[in-house]
Nucleic acid binder design. Structure first.
Lengths: 239, 239
DNA sequence: CTGATGCAACTAGTATGGCAGTTGGTTAGG
DNA sequence: CCTAACCAACTGCCATACTAGTTGCATCAG
């Protein structure tokens, strides 16, 4: 909890200074946990965090409350607050929720159709992703992945659905960041995006939802191997 | 904000006194908002709530943070905190999320099958509901409804899915309590539960998910009529 | 009488201080 | 040397105090 302070400070400065402190702290800590800057098992002392960012403990607490609701940290009263280790169970449950919602989203998109403006945005996002493939900018690629899914959800006017997906995505993204710098199958993910979009455009509900399912299961293929290679990042599961 | 104090006090005493104050406040306020004890549009002063329950503002704030994440209240900085009016958009979005998840749950239950213990519990719940039909205890009926859906989700080991459903249920339940004391179609709801369970038992994925869909859409049939009859409970939608 | 302006009484946001419970090392006893 | 009891140093939880921003009413000018 020393070398990483500078990294946290950078994230802190990226947040908009006019926002409430508790919000900024939430964003910073969430990002830090997902990006494996704060590793699973790390203890997060309220006092220490407050001193790190030169704020009081009150807004820190509120940020921690929200993070514990996301299932990223665990607050053990009178003992300490800890970054939760990745749980295979939680990740698979998160996938179930995400699959259910996002498959419903693309079905709706295929049946009702999307606004021309939305389709334009989606196509543009795919073009950007294709460019990322050639430049090898996988960081940007994944941000565009999030945008793609977000745009789909908003395209069928389901903002709440997106909020839920964004919440459970945290579990996914930790696994993803853990697998860096493995060669991730970005090409495959891109192809799947294309498949999803074309299925929607030809009003193929079944095809679109199947493509989405395959897409969402792709990320977790490497899960068992990761659990073996980095066991201390994962919760000790009962045998 | 006076006559209702006694009602809130009762809810307060029902909570377990050993739990953290912030948790108890969250439960009480959540229940009060859902049960329309705290009506849409009501202003919730942190100070006032703190005095009502003889606690400090700190745990009140933490409860309010969680409630605002559920979409039940809105915190407007330096102005006040308000119980959100029911929004048709939000309710329909909540239904979409719930439908997506619960249809996926029953599909999984039908394909993988449920443990005998779980099936027993479900059948017992249905029997209890049937008894409620004769005694006319609709309050208990709806608690059993929640248990039924909860048991299904846990039966396929999807605890996270249930948490999400429980979250969006808040939007549903406000509409339900608003429609009391209308004669609600409890018989129909019971029949739908039976239909869902039998479909699961005969491994009929499609039938189970269809039954669940009909079931979830039943509650909101009265929505348009309610919006006309009690317009001040609903958000002013753009024309 | 109507309008704008300024002040007082709110609000939520933040900071700080004191509390009880847990923990791990240390010390006293076997 | 080993074990058990104790104590100091943490932890998160709650209460209180203070700050900054908003709002509405009262007051004063036109």
């Amino acid at each position: 909890m020393d070398y990483m302070d500078t990294t946290l400070q950078n994230l802190w400065k990226e947040t908009t200074a006019t926002d409430p402190v508790s919000q900024r702290l939430y964003q910073v800590l969430r990002e830090a946990i997902i990006r494996m800057i704060l590793l699973p098992g790390t203890m997060l002392s309220e006092k220490e965090i407050a001193e790190t960012f030169a704020v009081s403990r009150q807004p820190v607490r509120e940020a921690l409350v929200r993070l514990s609701e996301l299932g990223l940290i665990e607050v053990r009263p009178q003992r300490g607050t800890f970054v939760l280790k990745i749980s295979k169970k939680m990740v698979l449950e998160a996938r179930f929720v995400r699959e259910a919602i996002e498959m419903a989203v693309v079905k709706l998109a295929a049946s009702k159709g999307l606004a021309p403006k939305t389709l334009d945005n989606l196509h543009e996002l795919l073009e950007c992703q294709q460019r990322c493939l050639t430049t090898g900018d996988s960081d940007r690629f994944y941000r565009l992945d999030e945008d793609f899914h977000h745009t789909l959800a908003l395209g069928v006017h389901q903002q709440s659905a997106w909020k839920v997906v964004k919440g459970v995505r945290a579990q996914f993204d930790r696994v993803r960041y853990l697998s860096i710098p493995d060669s991730s199958p970005t090409h495959k993910l891109y192809e799947q995006h294309v498949e999803i979009l074309t299925a929607i455009e030809r009003k193929d509900e079944q095809g679109a939802s199947q493509a989405m399912q395959s897409h969402l299961r792709e990320v977790l293929i490497s899960l068992p191997e990761l659990m073996e290679r980095k066991p201390n990042m994962f919760e000790d599961e009962p045998i």
